[in-house]
Amino acid sequence: MKPIDFHLHRPTTLAEAIALLAEHGDDAKVLAGGQSLLPLLNFRLARPEHVVDLGRLTTLRTTRRTTDGLTLGAMVTYARAEASRAVAEDAPLLAAALPFVAHKPVRARGTVGGSIAHGDPAAELPAVIRALDAVMVAAGPRGVRRIPAAEFFVGNLVTALEVDEILTGIDVARPARGTGAAFTEVGRRQGDFALVGAGAQVTVADGVVVDVRIALTGIAGVPHRATEAETLLTGVPPADLDLDAAADATRAVIAPSGDLHATADYRRDVAGVLLGRVVATAVERATGHAHRAA
């Protein structure tokens, strides 16, 4: 479990980092918090000849509030995001999901951008990003691109980023008043990558649910945006929400696979259970009281 011999680069500017990637292309890998990349290197599953450490790019470590939301620097650690008031207020679903990511030591180093760029379908943040329709900002030799979440996650550990692009930040829109969010998951142990996870953000206005965003982890190669459930829940007064029907709608369209830790049937069923739970909690948070219909 020793990595192959590689060159470590520690650029101090984004331009320098991009130039390194442009030069080494396929032979290079970006290093953020290292919480996924270092095991991959040690197992020799990743074999880059050049590793470009983003640790000195301090500009990527900031969280900025904008007129319509939040721009999270890619190198903001989970721990910093968890402690951020801006995140709590402007991205409540992200705030709800962060405590579920791994354990504190991993959250102290792992980064928001690293998780999203890694694109693990079992990870919390990609699902949150997908639910929120956040926009990924990527910089490369050909300039800056803005990539919507719906296009960003392409497959298991595959994203729309090109090999010479760096994810610099994530734009998250500020939710309307009357919004609540919730995240939950089930894993074999606390801190493990979950067997299934679910996040929901619900906005209630004038006594009806006007916006629902639900995404699931662990049931496909990319986060599952549960539009089939969202459709059933939108436009309905909170007290009349049929969460069982929503859960069943999602169970009907997903096709998770089974492994050592849980069968496909288990994942499918529990995805529906968790979906019901997070929507109920999100509605409660949006309205200030419980609404779960019997």
Binding site: V186, L195, H261, D265, Y266, D269
Partner: peptide, 11 residues
């Protein structure tokens, strides 16, 4: 005994 086993027994 995994959650999946328990779920299967209950189902």
């Amino acid at each position: 005994i995994t959650p999946s086993d328990i779920w299967s027994a209950l189902r």
